[in-house]
């Protein structure tokens, strides 16, 4: 749908504080950023707050954005990554409890048992991802949750494609062990 040229035009308009362009960028990337944040912090509400902050930060910084080969989304993910670091530095992680998150989902009346089980599985995966190294987490989230290609992930994290593949292999092995112990 949105080609690189379309994204570039949107970004240029956004740099001029065009509300419509910003709205479009928000629609394109909010869910991916939210997912990224969710798997990093393991809490829906915190993830939504972080995702919102990402776009507000992007608004502040967009005038200085320059194209350097990486996709625009990797710039947004970098902002998200920094906000997640701030989140942990601020000690908010003490309030985050995956079990509570699951509980709230059950209480929230998600309805069918299947849906509840999926949320349970999601929470388990989120917990398991948090046991990975920082680089492994980045690769797994950008690859599986944000749907980036190896090349895009490589540009986003500043490594070559071979390194991304190796990190992916090690991360999946580690996740398998963690999830297998449950």
């Amino acid at each position: 749908m949105d080609t690189l040229a379309d994204i570039k035009e949107l970004v240029e308009r956004a740099k001029n504080y065009d509300a419509e362009a910003f709205g479009r960028i928000y629609d394109l990337y909010f869910d991916k950023i939210f997912n990224y944040a969710y798997y990093k912090v393991g809490n829906r509400h915190e993830a939504e707050d972080i995702a919102e902050q990402v776009f507000l930060k992007a608004l502040e910084k967009i005038s200085g954005f320059e194209w350097r080969g990486a996709p625009f989304s990797s710039w947004l993910f970098r902002i998200a990554s920094n906000l997640v670091i701030d989140f942990y530095r601020a000690g908010k992680y003490e309030m985050v409890d995956i079990a509570c998150e699951e509980h709230s989902l059950y209480d929230g009346g998600c309805g069918p048992e299947e849906s509840a089980m999926r949320e349970h599985d999601r929470a388990s995966v989120a917990s398991a991802i948090k046991t990975l190294t920082e680089e492994q987490q980045q690769v797994i989230i950008l690859r599986f949750i944000s749907g980036m290609s190896n090349e895009e992930v490589a540009k986003a994290i500043g490594k070559n494609v071979g390194a991304v593949k190796a990190l992916q292999h090690r991360a999946i092995s580690a996740l398998g062990k963690t999830l297998g112990r449950e």
């Binding site: 509300a19 910003f22 709205g23 928000y26 629609d27 909010f30 869910d31 939210f34 997912n35 969710y38 829906r44 993830a47 939504e48 995702a51 919102e52 776009f55 507000l56 608004l59 999926r118 599985d121 999601r122 388990s124 995966v125 989120a126 797994i140 599986f144 949750i145 999946i172 092995s173 996740l175 398998g176 999830l179």
Partner: peptide
């Protein structure tokens, strides 16, 4: 098996109302 589990668990929908409110605040 792990990769598939990751892939299936991956997508999570944010709360619609909160997402819409955040969009309005951004605009």
């Amino acid at each position: 098996v792990s990769a598939l589990r990751l892939s299936e668990a991956a997508t999570i929908e944010p709360d619609y109302e909160r997402k819409r409110a955040a969009r309005e605040r951004l605009l």
